[in-house]
């Protein structure tokens, strides 16, 4: 493999890992953060009839997970094209 290719492959992987870490921090924050650790505090705030911590634990975290995966799909497709490693 040519050294230019190898450098591009490393840069692609670095960007990929950075994206993963960002998304996993959000994943952790919405579920373990807002849904468990901060839930007792957030429950003092109610949106419609939902105590907020309870809402995150039983609804919000799940919606956030979906957004996280589709963000990942979208960003990775862009990254694949940027580094010209996408599939036809």
């Amino acid at each position: 493999m040519a050294s230019g290719n190898q450098e591009a492959a490393m840069a692609y992987w670095k960007e990929n890992v950075r994206l993963l870490i960002t998304l996993l921090i959000i994943w952790f924050a919405v579920s373990f953060g807002l849904g468990i650790l901060l839930a007792p505090v957030l429950n003092n705030i109610a949106i419609a009839g939902y105590p907020l911590g309870f809402w995150f634990a039983q609804q919000g975290a799940i919606y956030a997970f979906i957004v996280i995966i589709f963000t990942y799909v979208f960003k990775m497709n862009a990254l694949d094209r940027k580094y010209d490693v996408h599939e036809e």
């Binding site: 994943w27 468990i36 997970f65 995966i69």
Partner: peptide, 19 residues
């Protein structure tokens, strides 16, 4: 509220799987 572990646990795993 305590059953939230199943709701989050059995869906949040898909983020790990996908990423």
């Amino acid at each position: 509220y305590d059953a939230s572990v199943y709701l989050m646990g059995w869906t949040g795993g898909y983020v790990l799987l996908a990423l």
